[in-house]
Design a protein around this nucleic acid. Structure first.
Length: 846
RNA sequence: GCCCGGGUGGCGGAAUGGCAGACGCGGCGGAUUCAAAAUCCGCUGCCCGAAAGGGCGUGUGGGUUCGACUCCCACCCCGGGCACCA
């Protein structure tokens, strides 16, 4: 490698008294471990809760411990580390903690495969990943490490569960769930592939109705929606959350069941429907119910029983994915119930169908169908020969089927002529007046199904008592821990189901025999409050101290992958709000993450890097050869941080070459310069000084706006400039160069911490660069006396003239008109008009 | 289908109404060297031209403006998310 040949060559500029290590070239494998040890030994990035400096909380999403770091980790933690070091140099007390999201399926699967206990397996992976993170040079307050599977953390996760239970934010309910027969557990939606198979095992996911535990996140739907606006998050993520919550306004009302004469029956409740378009109610020509609707039996006539039952069975056998995959087919699958409902707007009867395009989980599970204004209803009506009435007048040139645009109401009696907004208002007012229904807001957001039929997760602290029913475990008995002596079998069943040691307990209420809940919590529960625990990670009396959380939270900068845009970030927001409302977290802490940055994914040849694909470029191998500073710099340089990157585009060699250049510049510049220069500042001094201030200003603003690729460009450009001057005959004074080189090192220190620390300590008698103040550009020095004025003819560049910054408009125009290329372009003609923006530009229109 | 991004040299990208292509990679040339590596310096959008110089050029087509990669309208293509949500 490059550096090894250099180490053998004596430095030409060195004299015999230079210490041996000074003659060494840049050898990252030598300097990097030393500095990593130094930061740990000196507690450089440890902060206490009584730190008097201004607070700043930087957090990278804590990782699932999967073994040594991969490039995605490097990318994430490089940016986080850069910010931590940058803010520290700015004078802030920066809380930069790390932890591990250490519950999850891989550890359990490993246990099934090899018999290693998940804890042992997990602790080993944590060890590997911690070591990797240190080798990247990431700086943390390791004293604050939090792991999800730590009994102390489990205790407080369970405690919070109980508090939510007391507050009515936890309930047990029946719900159709994604069940993977291979994994023997329910799955979150994101664990199901688009083709309906399990992301992990490949089995076809089934829909099952199961009693499960839920967090009542829907209680917070409106607040979760409202508070998105105030977040400094990527718009993409904010939009995704808004769509996920999916607020829609409309009306809910009852459609009475009709008797044989078409009159409303009083012996059966009306069928409730939700619609966002009450203004189109006169166009309702049929109604549709979800096949799982609780009223199906009651509304099905005897002669239709068989057909309805067959349809229900058919739908039940399908996964949700299958059921929705009919999209695009012209025929809407459905069956007639034999019953008619009364459209209260017209008094006429409409047939009631079951159809799988109506979902039981949204709204009331039943709809009024208005084929004239809804394409799904239109398709169904065509397939089943049902009437279609337009109630909104489409434009004359409209050629489609259902018309969903604006227009005046028609065929709607007392709504005729009204535009949609007014018609909606009037229709809702009428419904309320008639006491048939009311205005209603619906959300797409569902409650959070938190139970998992797995071993390696936080046990749900509930017991089942034959006398008292479901009972919460007493707070004093926490934590509920899974036993160690269990057998992992390849059936995939949780070993807890067969562990008497765990199962058998007594009822906290009546002290009679009881059985423990064997389900564990979704791992997203653990990650929903860890950022609070970091403020006070060793507290044994509470989940966290209110004041500590108040002092550090909200997180000033949260950094992670966009794949968590909805789930984790929504859950964490919900937890924070609920904890604040319960008086556990500060009342005014409404949002956990003030600012969010989502970094891009690292791919190889266009596909995601993953162990299973075997296309992994191991960071450690690069750290071994070129060093972590080179790797970090390459991650910064390759692309804007928010974008996905391909490993093929990385310029490792270029970055390594550059660091070598910086090394040589910082170690040898004084030897290459005329030793003592006195007297007035030279032209070179002035230019370098001005360039240094511009450079500091540029890097600072690039750091602030997450433009790390251009910051690297600035490092390189500035270094190139210094090389040019240092080598010239009439170079700058020593102190000018020293100022420039020091500024370069200081601004690079957050990005490439090891090389800059090493160079700084040599240049400044053992001082530590990361304890230096961030350099500030002098605003006066940013202004230059002359500037290049652009001269255009008809908007095209024709000349550049060096002018004084305060040149008058008249002088600027005169100079431009006197320019040789301008005269040639004008060819004797007189300009029609001249636009002068002194001193930047003159545009001559001919 | 809907909602977000994005489209600029051979490649990654820079430029938030005013010099298009910073910086890096790759390529070419030079210095150094016995030679090579490393290093240092220079050139490098396309076309015409010996040069001076000129023409063209930021997905496509229009528009606004003295001036548009940048703003507006329409369209094409690529990436991502959501997807029968009534």
């Amino acid at each position: 490698m490059a550096e090894s040949s250099q180490t053998d060559q004596p430095d030409n500029h060195s004299t015999h008294e230079t210490p041996a290590h000074d003659r060494l070239g840049y050898v990252p494998t030598d300097i990097e471990p030393r500095w990593q040890q130094y930061w740990v030994d000196n507690g450089t990035y440890e902060v206490n809760n009584d730190d008097p400096r201004p607070r700043y909380y930087v957090l990278c999403m804590y990782p699932y411990p999967s073994g040594p770091a991969h490039q995605g980790h490097v990318r994430n933690y490089t940016f986080g580390d850069l910010l931590t070091r940058y803010r520290t140099m700015q004078g802030d007390a920066v809380l930069s903690p790390i932890g591990f999201d250490s519950f999850g399926l891989p550890a359990e699967n490993a246990a099934i495969k090899s018999g290693i206990h998940p804890r042992v397996f997990t602790d080993e992976r944590i060890e590997e990943l911690s070591s990797s993170l240190k080798r990247i040079g990431a700086s943390y307050d390791w004293r604050r490490m939090v792991t999800s599977h730590d009994p102390e953390y489990i205790r407080w996760t369970q405690w919070i569960f109980l508090k939510f239970y007391e507050a009515g934010l936890v309930y047990r309910g029946n719900s159709p769930v994604n069940w993977c027969p291979g994994c023997q557990t329910v799955l979150a939606n994101e664990q199901v592939n688009a083709d309906g198979t399990c992301d992990r095992s490949g089995d076809i996911v089934e829909r099952r109705d199961m009693e499960q535990w839920f967090y009542k996140i829907t209680d917070y739907a409106q607040e979760l929606l409202d508070d998105i606006e105030g977040l400094e998050w990527p718009n993409k993520v904010k939009t995704m959350q808004q769509n996920w919550i999916g607020r829609s306004e409309g009306a809910e009302f009852g459609l009475p069941v009709a008797d044989a004469n078409g009159k409303p029956r009083t012996d059966i409740e009306p069928v409730r429907v939700f619609t966002t378009r009450p203004d189109t109610s006169f166009g309702m020509t049929f109604a549709v119910m979800a096949p799982e609707h609780s009223m199906v039996d009651a509304v099905t006539t005897p002669e239709n029983k068989d057909a309805v039952a067959a349809f229900q069975a058919d739908v039940a056998g399908k996964s949700e994915i299958d059921r929705l995959s009919n999209d695009g087919e012209i025929t809407k699958r459905g069956v007639f119930t034999g019953t008619h409902l009364v459209n209260p707007f017209t008094g006429k009867t409409v047939p009631l169908y079951l159809a799988d395009y109506v979902l039981t989980t949204y709204g009331t599970g039943a709809i009024m169908a208005v084929p004239g204004q809804d394409q799904r209803d239109w398709d169904f009506a065509e397939a089943h020969g049902l009437e279609i009435i337009r109630t909104i007048e489409p434009p004359a040139d409209f050629e489609g089927k259902a018309y969903t645009g604006d227009g005046p109401s028609v065929n709607s009696e007392w709504l005729d002529g009204l535009e949609i907004t007014d018609a909606k208002k009037k229709a809702i007012a009428w419904l309320e007046e008639q006491q048939l229904g009311e205005q209603k807001v619906n959300y797409r957001l569902r409650d959070w199904l938190l139970s998992r039929q797995r071993f390696w997760g936080c046990p749900i602290p509930m017991v089942y008592c034959d006398n008292c029913g479901v009972q919460p475990v007493a707070e004093t008995s926490l934590p509920v821990l899974a036993p160690d002596e269990v057998e992992f079998t390849p059936t995939g069943q949780s070993p807890l189901l067969n562990s008497d040691e765990f199962l058998v307990t007594e009822c906290p209420t009546c002290e009679g025999p009881a059985r423990r809940e064997t389900d564990t919590m979704d791992t997203f529960v653990d990650s929903s409050w860890y950022f609070l625990r970091f403020a006070d990670p060793t507290n044994t009396d509470a989940a966290f101290d209110m004041n500590a959380v108040g002092d550090w939270l909200p997180v000033d900068q949260y950094i992670g992958g966009v794949e968590h845009a909805i789930l984790h970030l929504m859950y964490a927001r919900f937890f924070t709000k609920a904890l604040a409302d319960l008086g556990i977290a500060p009342k005014d802490l409404r949002e956990p993450f003030k600012r969010l940055f989502t970094q891009g994914m690292v791919k190889l040849g266009g596909t995601k890097m993953s162990k299973s694909k075997g296309n992994v470029i191991a960071p450690e191998a690069i750290i071994d050869s070129q060093g972590s500073d080179t790797l970090r710099l390459a991650h910064m340089q390759v692309k804007p941080p928010a974008e996905d990157v391909d490993w093929e585009d990385f310029g490792l060699d270029g970055c390594h070459r550059f660091l070598n250049r910086v090394w040589r510049l910082a170690r040898t510049e004084t030897d290459q310069l005329p030793k003592v220069r006195t007297g007035a500042a030279t032209k070179a001094d002035n230019e370098i000084e001005a360039a240094t201030h511009r450079f500091i200003d540029k890097v600072t603003s690039d750091y602030e706006r997450w433009s790390y690729n251009t910051a690297v460009a600035a490092f390189m450009e500035f270094t190139n400039l210094l090389y040019k001057y240092v080598q010239s005959e009439d170079g700058p004074h020593d102190h000018t160069t020293a100022f420039a080189v020091d500024s370069l090192l200081l601004t690079m220190a957050p990005a490439v911490p090891h090389i800059t620390a090493e160079l700084w300590t040599h240049r400044h008698d053992g001082a530590h660069i990361h304890q230096q103040q961030w350099p500030v550009a002098d605003p006066d020095k940013l202004k230059s006396e002359t500037v290049t004025m652009i001269v255009q003819v008809n908007g095209k560049l024709r000349d550049k003239i060096e002018v004084s910054v305060d040149i008058s408009e008249q002088d600027a125009e005169a100079l431009a008109l006197a320019s040789e290329p301008v005269i040639r372009q004008l060819a004797g003609g007189t300009p029609k008009k001249t636009i002068v923006r002194a001193p930047k530009i003159v545009n001559i229109v001919s």
